[in-house]
Each structure stands twice: as structure tokens, then as C-alpha cells.
């Protein structure tokens, strides 16, 4: 069970955008529900995997605190639409604590903040999309990209926010516009582009301010949790 779930992690995460693509190309009428269920399944598999890995306190607590911080940040910045620190915090979490924590921080932030903003069918999609923002942050950091090119993190920040926007818009387009035509899709992407750009700029701004000091502070906390040993161990 444990092994199967662990192997499923990457395929199921990749299957979510794939579903959107299949639904779009086959013009499936029930795309909204179908893709929603797939996204929910992906999140469920991810969390079940985390649960079965018997996480210890030093994995649980930073994820919870960062997730809650991102949610609180979203609430504190609610006055400025789409200017939110969530993506930036997910990226920092992914880079410092690894891809899994990155995903969990994003998912928790979306879920918990929606208890304050209002839940809707968008909740699983936000959980998935922000989760992926943190997940890729962790994957790229694991590959050593950000060590080699420190500026890459800001570039990633910009594109990750766009990725978030594209995922949500695609779900909306595929799920709720029927029959799907090129014109309507382009209109929908065009309408969401300005907001995505604000989000991307906000993410880069936040990263510029928090990335270096937070990484330092988080590493300090990691030390305090007696997180020593090889880098590989620390990330798992």
C-alpha cells in the first residue's frame, strides 16, 4: 500500500493537467466534475502518502506554520487583489524543506484561507495549483538550480505565479465553456492575464524581500529542530 502510493505520487500529480488536456481535446461534457475529482484524488493521494510516511515533528510543524503564515498573508493582503504572498512562501518552503513540504504548504494555505474567503469548487484547484508551485520549487532546488543561479529563483517565482493562473483558468475554460472554441479560450486567458501578471509581480516582489532572509531564518529553525545529517535526509 505504502509503496504503491509512493510510486503514484508523480503520475497522479501529472495526471491532473493531463485530464484537463484530454477533456479539452475530446470535448467531454462532464469536464468540470471529472477534472475536479481527479484534482481531489491527486491531493488525497499526496496527503495519504505523507500520512503513511510517518512524518516527525520537524516535518510537520514547519509545514503547518508556513501554511498558516501563507493563509494569514493572503488575508492580510486581501485589500490588494491578486497581490498575495502565498506563492512566494510556498516556493521558500519547497526550497528549504523539500518538494513535499512545498506541496503541503501550498495545499494547506489554500484550504485554510478559504475557510475565511469562502469555499467553492475552486478550492481543490487552488490547493493543487499552489501545491505544485511549492513542489516544483523543491524539485528545482533539489537539482541545485538555485545554488548555481541565484537569480533563477525569481524567474521561477514569476513563471510559477503564471502557472498557477494558467492552471486555474484552464480548469475554468475546460469545465465551464461549452462547446470549447479557440476564440473563447483566448478570451478567457486574455481576461485573466492582467491578474496573473499582478500575481507574478507580487510573487517576485515578495521573493526579493523574503527569499534570502527567510531561507536563513528557516535554516536556523531547522538547526534548532536538530535537523542535522546529510542534505538528502533533511529533505525527506
Amino acid at each position: 500500500m505504502k509503496r504503491i502510493l509512493a510510486k503514484l505520487e508523480i503520475p497522479i500529480l501529472a495526471f491532473v493537467p493531463l485530464t484537463l488536456f484530454i477533456c479539452a481535446s475530446l470535448q467531454i461534457t462532464q469536464a468540470a466534475v471529472l477534472s475536479l475529482l481527479v484534482a481531489l484524488a491527486a491531493i488525497a493521494v499526496f496527503f495519504a502518502n505523507f500520512e503513511l510516511s510517518k512524518p516527525v515533528l520537524r516535518q510537520i510543524i514547519p509545514a503547518v506554520v508556513l501554511g498558516a503564515l501563507a493563509a494569514a498573508g493572503r488575508i492580510l493582503f486581501a485589500a490588494i487583489p491578486d497581490f498575495k504572498p502565498v506563492s512566494a512562501i510556498c516556493i521558500v518552503a519547497g526550497v528549504v524543506f523539500g518538494r513535499r513540504t512545498g506541496f503541503i504548504v501550498g495545499a494547506i494555505a489554500a484550504l485554510v484561507s478559504n475557510f475565511f474567503f469562502g469555499h467553492g469548487p475552486w478550492t481543490p484547484w487552488q490547493m493543487y495549483s499552489w501545491g505544485m508551485v511549492g513542489y516544483f520549487g523543491g524539485v528545482l532546488a533539489d537539482r541545485g538550480l538555485f545554488d548555481k543561479h541565484p537569480a533563477a529563483v525569481y524567474v521561477y517565482g514569476f513563471f510559477s505565479a503564471l502557472l498557477y493562473g494558467v492552471l486555474l483558468t484552464t480548469w475554468h475554460v475546460v469545465g465551464f465553456i461549452q462547446p470549447l472554441t479557440w476564440q473563447s479560450a483566448i478570451l478567457a486567458y486574455g481576461a485573466s492575464l492582467p491578474f496573473d501578471i499582478i500575481h507574478a509581480v507580487a510573487t517576485v516582489t515578495f521573493l526579493l524581500i523574503i527569499y534570502a532572509p527567510w531561507s536563513r531564518k528557516l535554516l536556523r529553525i531547522k538547526d534548532k529542530y536538530a535537523l542535522s545529517g546529510s542534505k538528502q535526509d533533511a529533505r525527506l
Binding site: E51, I60, A63, V64, A71, I104
Partner: peptide, 14 residues
């Protein structure tokens, strides 16, 4: 249980 607890903790912190 662990994931439930994590969300409960986050709900308290927000």
C-alpha cells in the same frame, strides 16, 4: 489523523 491534526493546527494559527 496526522493530516487532520495539521489542518486543525493551521486553523488555530491563522
Amino acid at each position: 489523523p496526522v493530516v487532520g491534526l495539521m489542518i486543525s493546527m493551521a486553523m488555530r494559527l491563522v
